[in-house]
Design a protein around this nucleic acid. Structure first.
Length: 540
RNA sequence: GGUCCGAUAGCUCAGUCGGUAGAGCAAAUGGCUUUUAACCAUUGGGUCGAAGGUUCGAGUCCUUCUCGGAUCACCA
């Protein structure tokens, strides 16, 4: 077996060499260079994270008042000492703070910022005044002689913990005057560019940790920082959840590994269960499981989780993507559109302020959703086109989809391509189905759920016939689902909402890879692998 | 899969007509020490994505390949 060596994985250069030397020297000073914990103070009520401290009212107040003082003195002049001292008395009375984080710059001066990934806090180490080193020897022995010696050995990106008192600098920034320094963890690799972060999209996606570090260090950002993108995505997910919970929905988890890949038109990933010796498929949709639960008496049910589709990658497709799918008994497609509008509005208002989303130069207004029949939309964007059941989707895709910038429900889908959807009672050829389009992109799909087991069976049979004819994505008959429907399912409506695409819209990101922490990529191949093989052949 | 664009120091990027491989940041050494991308001086750091070709000479031109991005076709 060819196990790569540590130095094959971690590139060695002058920078890593310097860090290794610093680490060895630190080991002599502090003992354990990877201690197990650091207890932060609790002045803010909870744990004193950097973010908590930066948002803590006493600190916010002092920085605000100091800013006013600075406005009233000439540019470049220091604030009067007595005013500063008054602020410092207030800050010092708050108590001793213990805070930890990563160094955002090289520690060459005696000022440095620590980050918790989101916010930065400045600390001040006074060489002359002296500060103590806390040894990582289990007892926390204080080494008052070596504080500054340890300080000289820490590197850009290392984690340290400090204890000290708060004060305000001449520039008005509340900082920690360090009295005790504790070394917490080493960064063996150099940090990204402090101005620009990581520019290479491949490295950003493959090494998201590195990208996130860059995002927390970088001074300039175009749009949201990587950290902010994923915080916003988390906000989208949590506000969608809370909206559904508040409306009486219950969250469930249904199988990811399924014996049949059905519930959507897509190619599945295949795998094998050894003990059972059967083929399993990564689910392409949770739809049929969720409706089984409606049969079983869950009147409002949702699942917010991953789907897997074995298809091409693009700026709006990742092999695994997050879908919010939910079902509501006694509701039809129109009720679902009404509810979906409210859900979108709730999520958007909670995520950004207001309902107007800036996306790639467009102003997308979520205060209003249009509803347009598919035929009407085609007539609008491809006037004169002759529409029949066979070309309607093609016409729609070719002429309409890209034009649907503002939120638009396209309704009245052909029944033939909607095998899980109820027909419109007034027009049996049309399904009670919608898809929601925003910025030319499908973001949701919903319908009145077909609950007649006999008709569902016939639709599956039609799909299987399409499959025989070569349509590999035609839906697969699910016998157990027919059995479930035969026990009776109340009238219901359901919807699937693409979370990644919503995240793209709300973070102004063009690529789905920018809103997925670890998007799918080709396996990383190191150049060394090739040359090592070659080396074995030539060496004797 | 097709088309177009890209890959140069740890990071961000220059590199003219084919003629000695560059800058800023980061690193090392020294100085300074209430700074806000700290500053000043000095030093080290490169298989120019890989292989081949043209040429006296290739980061630069040609071919192939790898990886990535954009875009088109299928999927949400």
């Amino acid at each position: 077996m060819n196990i790569p060596g540590f130095t094959d994985i971690i590139e060695q250069n002058d920078q890593t060499e310097a860090r290794r030397e610093h680490l060895d020297a630190l080991r002599d000073l502090v003992g354990n260079v990877y201690p197990n914990k650091f207890e932060r103070s609790r002045l803010t009520g909870g744990e004193d994270t950097i973010t908590a401290l930066k948002q803590w009212q006493p600190i916010v107040d002092v920085e605000h008042e100091m800013a006013i003082v600075k406005e009233n003195i000439p540019e470049g002049e220091r604030p009067p000492a007595e005013i500063k001292e008054a602020f410092n008395d207030r800050l010092r009375a708050l108590g001793t703070v213990r805070v930890a984080g990563r160094l955002t710059t090289p520690p060459r001066g005696n000022f440095v910022h620590l980050t918790d990934g989101m916010n930065k806090l400045q600390i001040y180490c006074d060489k002359k005044g002296g500060f103590a080193l806390v040894k990582n020897d289990g007892a926390g022995t204080i080494d008052s002689a070596n504080g500054w010696n340890a300080w000289k050995l820490i590197d850009h990106g290392d984690f340290i913990g400090v204890e000290g008192y708060l004060f305000v600098t001449n520039t008005g920034e509340v900082s920690v005057h360090v009295e005790k320094l504790q070394f917490l963890a080493k960064a063996m690799l150099p940090m990204p560019d402090k101005m620009h972060g990581i520019a290479d999209a491949e490295i950003r996606q493959r090494q998201r940790y590195y990208d996130l570090i860059g995002s927390s260090l970088a001074v300039e950002h175009e749009g949201l920082s990587t950290r902010e993108v994923f915080e916003r995505r988390a906000k989208i997910v949590s506000s969608a959840r809370s909206f559904l919970e508040d409306n009486g929905y219950i969250e469930v988890e249904t199988p990811m590994l399924t014996p049949k890949a059905t519930g959507a038109a897509a190619t599945p990933f295949e795998t094998h269960h050894n003990a059972l010796d059967i083929t399993l498929y990564a689910r392409i949709a949770p739809e049929l499981y969720l409706k089984r639960l409606v049969v079983g008496g869950f009147e409002k049910v949702y699942e917010l989780n991953r789907n897997f589709r074995n298809e091409g990658l693009s700026y709006k497709h990742n092999p695994e993507f997050t879908m919010l799918e939910f079902y509501c008994a006694y509701m039809d497609v129109n009720g679902m559109m009404d509810f979906a509008e409210k859900l979108y509005q709730h999520v958007i208002e909670n995520t950004i302020s207001g309902l107007v989303v800036e996306y790639e130069g467009n102003e997308i207004d979520f205060s209003r959703f249009e509803r347009v029949a598919m035929r009407d939309a085609i007539n609008k964007y491809a006037p004169g086109a002759e529409i029949d059941d066979n070309n309607i989707i093609q016409l729609f895709d070719d002429h309409v989809e890209a034009n649907l910038i503002q939120p638009t429900f396209i309704i009245d889908y052909p029944k033939s391509i909607s095998p899980l959807s109820k027909a419109d009672p007034a027009n049996p050829a049309v399904a009670e189905r919608f898809e929601l389009f925003v910025n030319g992109m499908e973001v949701a799909n919903g319908f009145s759920e077909l609950n007649d087991p006999r008709e569902q069976y016939d639709r599956f049979v039609d799909q299987m016939a399409e499959r025989e004819k070569g349509d590999e994505e035609a839906m697969v008959l699910d016998e157990d689902y027919i059995r479930a429907l035969s026990y009776g399912m109340p009238p219901a409506a359901g919807i699937g909402i693409g979370i990644d695409r919503l995240a793209m819209l709300l973070t102004n990101k063009h690529s789905i890879r920018d809103v997925i922490l670890f998007p799918h990529m080709r396996p990383e191949r190191k150049e060394g692998e090739k040359s090592r093989e070659g080396g074995e052949e030539t060496s004797s």
